[in-house]
Design a protein around this nucleic acid. Structure first.
Length: 177
DNA sequence: CATGTGATTGTTAGC
DNA sequence: GCTAACAATCACATG
């Protein structure tokens, strides 16, 4: 039982305090140099590291992928990426954790892959002293394929398991706010 | 021709 | 611990 300590496990601060909630952020206290990037940080293309693993898409992005398709389907005229982002974000907030659960799960899986890629990237960097990229590529490929299968299997394995968590708050529908 | 930008939130890594 | 930056997407605009 949790009695007094039940909901304390909720992230702690964040929505309650939200020190830097404003996406604009402006510059709560950010140093001048970094603040500039915050305005428009998009120089990711400048780097050409083929091994550089991209960050794993969060549950929100996973949901967005699916949402974008639906959104575009109903709004084929809308081509603004911002429109999908806004609509998606709004809906995302509307969704209860139960709905986000499957997305989070997928995101978690994505993260696992990201970690694996990081491992490969790490290795490459270590051994990357020479220009034997070809050799490394082959090894990496094998490793990746192996892991992918495992993940897929795991997903197909458990699907009839209904997870109900009556931990502290039963958020079947919407939650606070 | 090529690449940055805009907007969303979440996650991660650096200090 | 907190802050900054980046993850996808697509059409447009600028160099």
């Amino acid at each position: 039982m949790k009695t007094a300590k039940g909901k304390d496990k909720v992230k702690t601060t964040k929505e309650a305090l939200k020190p830097v909630d404003d996406r604009k952020v402006g510059k709560r206290k950010a140093p001048a140099e970094k603040a500039t990037k915050r305005e428009t940080r998009k120089e990711k293309k400048a780097k050409k590291d083929p091994n550089k693993p991209k960050r794993a898409p969060s549950a929100f992005f996973v949901f967005l992928e699916d949402f974008r398709v639906t959104f575009k389907k109903e709004n084929p005229n809308v081509k603004a990426v911002s429109a999908v982002g806004k609509a998606g974000g709004q809906k995302w907030k509307s969704m209860s954790q139960a709905e986000k659960a499957p997305y989070e799960e997928k995101a978690a899986k994505r993260k696992a892959e990201y970690e694996k890629q990081m491992d490969a990237y790490n290795k490459n960097m270590e051994e990357g002293s020479d220009e034997s990229e070809k050799s490394r590529s082959e090894v990496n490929d094998e490793d990746e394929a192996s892991g992918e299968e495992e993940l897929l299997e795991k997903e197909a394995a458990g699907d009839d398991e209904e997870e109900e968590e009556d931990d502290d708050d039963d958020d079947d529908d919407e939650e606070e706010d």
